[in-house]
Design a binder for these strands. Structure first.
Lengths: 202, 202
DNA sequence: TCATAACCGAACACCTTGTCCGGTAACCGA
DNA sequence: TCGGTTACCGGACAAGGTGTTCGGTTATGA
């Protein structure tokens, strides 16, 4: 269920990040995506039905199924728009550990509405899981580059770091805190860096 | 949706942790709960229908709705059986920070099946959210008792600690790691204690 | 033993899903 | 501007899930 590949079978699917040439296709896809985002914020992902979406988007039922296989397909199609998940490579220099943190917290603020819909509790946690996965890879690479040995202990450490970060991210998204991006970044570093440094020492 | 109170309206609901006196009631409730757990492990929470549950439990449809309002109601009714969420008060002595950690990881191992069904990714994350909430209260109390001032920064720290712990817990539940309870406990402490101690110092 | 309360099971109205198809309208390229 | 292509419409459809009702049956605890 988590690892479902969304293969073909849907006529107008565009591969990769490419945008369809036909204006009608772009328009329809955009309307459907926006409708889902709006509805999630109103009712929560689980409560939204396909019928809701096509009514809000003012699109025919058959049209919907010509573009997407189901509700979840629409949800995932929005991920590529989450800019904070694709941060700049950081410059390559290992000058600072976890350089992704600050920019991410800032991007989240800019895309508040979209992020809240896709990654908040109301989204059903599907996109959240994907975000954790992507972040874990980033963190792991950074730690290895900083001299950590590839061990089982490293994976556990990565899990902790990612868990802490995603916790803060969710708190921000859910409005449980009013802290600024700078404060969130500082809290994240203060919490995990001491432990990480100690693990990198010996 | 998250904060839905499951008020009355269901005839045979037992209040609090009390057990019904009638053997038929106990039997029926148990059969339904066990059926849901088994089905979650097979298909994932979202894919399970009420029809599935009553067939597996071999219980009449009207009987089901006499005891539970819906699928989610059954899910939540299982929480009280998760012993690791109700750890011994720790003896009161502030001898050791986060004393809950080790026993929790051990209890999880003992209740593998139930925990995996209720708190794994296949459960839809509903119980997971509740667990985070309970744990946050515990962590916050410990930190305050250890001398932390009640500030916004404290809440952020609590969020990080809980996130790290729940990350490890989920990794264990999902089978992403084969680490023993002792190793998980050690990894948790190594990751967060340095940061926590630094925050408690000044 | 017996009154009570729980269970059965069948039927129900309603909603959601995913598919199909002929007709209509918009698009893009020539 | 024109014309072939392509997308959209919209209505209908079967299948399956939900939650409720009600009269009859059976187990329970006193």
């Amino acid at each position: 269920m988590v690892n479902e590949q969304i293969g073909p079978g849907v006529p107008y699917r565009t591969e990769g990040g490419k945008v369809s040439g036909d204006r009608r296709v772009r328009r329809t896809r955009r309307l459907i995506q926006e409708a889902l985002v709006a509805l999630i914020l109103e009712k929560g992902y689980d409560a939204v039905t396909v019928t809701d979406i096509i009514e809000r988007a003012d699109v025919g039922r058959s049209t919907f199924y010509a573009h997407f296989t189901d509700k979840q397909d629409v949800l995932f199609s929005n991920i590529e728009q989450l800019t904070f998940l694709h941060p700049a490579p950081g410059g390559g220099g290992p000058g600072e550990l976890f350089a992704f943190s600050r920019p991410m917290f800032e991007h989240v603020g800019e895309q508040e509405r979209l992020v809240r819909a896709l990654m908040g509790r109301r989204s059903g946690g599907l996109v959240h899981a994907r975000g954790e996965q992507l972040l874990a890879a980033v963190v792991r690479n950074e730690l290895v580059a900083a001299g950590a040995g590839e061990s089982a202990a490293l994976d556990l450490l990565v899990t902790c770091v990612v868990g802490a970060f995603m916790g803060l991210l969710r708190a921000r998204i859910e409005g449980e805190t009013t802290a600024s991006p700078a404060e969130l970044d500082a809290a994240f570093r203060a919490a995990v860096l001491p432990g990480v440094r100690a693990a990198l020492k010996p």
